[in-house]
Simulated assay, not measured.
Amino acid sequence: MGIKIIVDSACDLPKSYLEENNVELLSLKVLYNEKEYDDMVSIQAKEVFDAMREGAVIKTSQAAPTQAKEVFENIAKNKESAIYIAFSSELSGTYQMAMLMKNDVLEEYPGLDVTIINTKGASLGIGLIVKRAVELANIGASKEEIIAEVEKYVAQMEYVFTVDNLDYLARGGRVSKASAFVGGLLNIKPLLHMEDGKLIPIEKIRGRKKVLRRMVDLMKERGGSFENQTIAISHGDDEETALVLKEMIQTETGANDFYIHSIGSAIGAHAGPGTIALFFLNKDYF
């Protein structure tokens, strides 16, 4: 019996991919119009982005403990071995909740075999980790081999992203409203990355073209062996810009394997439409 992979909806992989590869999904919650939705299941990113453009404030919360508990109970009952590749504990309570539910299930099912890994990441950074884990599981790799590779990916994954409108980060409390106002007037685009699971600003750049240029430069500085890895780009309902970034990277690095997909509802509710995020393995992986 193969290793079961579990992931939450912060991975931003399409639901069709998860279903085709028998990956178990835990949905984060999206709160909109006084209703609660399951990310990737009962609400889609396009609806969230359109609402945000019209001024709606979308809130999110962690995956439901009842869902995680049910998934873990089924793993135990079926005597399966599983790995849950989780959203950064610095950005959501989902990881901590899963640890609590695992301990609850262990009381009734002491043989439960679930390893929970904190990716300290988000979006297609997690998605690339999941895809690698699925590749290994599909060729019959052992749980220990998959965990070792997942942890290596976690340690060496780079996250570089920009948002198109600072107002969306201001609504979520990520920047002050005054900073968002001034940034909007000056066409300032913040460049951010992930450090130990947290969102950290790198610099502020004036203009969309310049920020894309800087993203490519940072990738060249930090990354390595681009022709031997998948480069992921996620976007907030802006595939056109994602494709521009892809072409820039392809021209300058020789990379030829790309994975492009929309940011999901839960991540998109904070980043907003127009967000562009880039994910790749750094030099230390190779």
Rank of each mutant, 00 (worst) to 15 (best):
E20I: 00
E20T: 08
S27F: 09
S27P: 10
L28E: 04
K29D: 13
K29R: 14
V30S: 07
Y32V: 04
N33D: 14
N33H: 12
N33P: 07
N33I: 03
K35I: 09
K35Y: 09
Y37R: 06
D38W: 14
D38C: 09
D39I: 00
M40F: 12
S42V: 09
A45P: 10
K46Y: 05
K46H: 09
V48P: 01
F49K: 03
A51E: 03
M52W: 13
M52E: 13
E54I: 06
E54D: 15
G55A: 10
G55K: 07
A56I: 05
A56W: 06
V57W: 10
V57T: 14
I58K: 04
I58A: 06
T60A: 03
T60Q: 04
S61V: 02
S61Q: 02
Q62F: 08
P65G: 10
T66A: 15
T66F: 12
K69T: 13
F72K: 04
F72C: 08
I75N: 10
I75H: 01
A76Q: 04
K79V: 01
E80H: 01
E80K: 02
S81W: 05
S81L: 06
S81D: 13
I83W: 05
I83N: 11
Y84P: 05
I85P: 00
I85R: 02
A86R: 05
A86Q: 12
F87R: 00
S88L: 06
S89T: 12
E90Y: 05
L91V: 06
G93N: 09
G93F: 07
G93V: 11
Y95S: 03
Q96W: 08
Q96T: 15
M97C: 10
M97L: 12
M97H: 02
M97F: 04
A98D: 13
M99D: 12
M99G: 15
L100V: 14
L100K: 15
K102C: 09
N103M: 11
N103W: 04
D104V: 11
V105P: 03
V105Q: 00
V105K: 00
L106E: 14
L106T: 13
E108W: 05
Y109N: 07
Y109W: 02
P110E: 11
G111E: 15
D113P: 01
V114C: 07
V114A: 05
T115A: 15
T115P: 12
I116L: 08
I116D: 07
I117M: 08
N118L: 10
N118C: 11
T119H: 00
T119R: 02
A122N: 09
L124T: 07
G125V: 00
I126C: 05
G127L: 05
G127H: 01
L128M: 14
I129E: 06
I129S: 08
V130A: 06
V130F: 06
K131D: 06
R132Y: 03
A133G: 06
A133H: 08
E135D: 14
L136A: 02
A137T: 08
N138V: 00
G140K: 03
G140L: 07
S142D: 03
K143A: 06
E144Y: 04
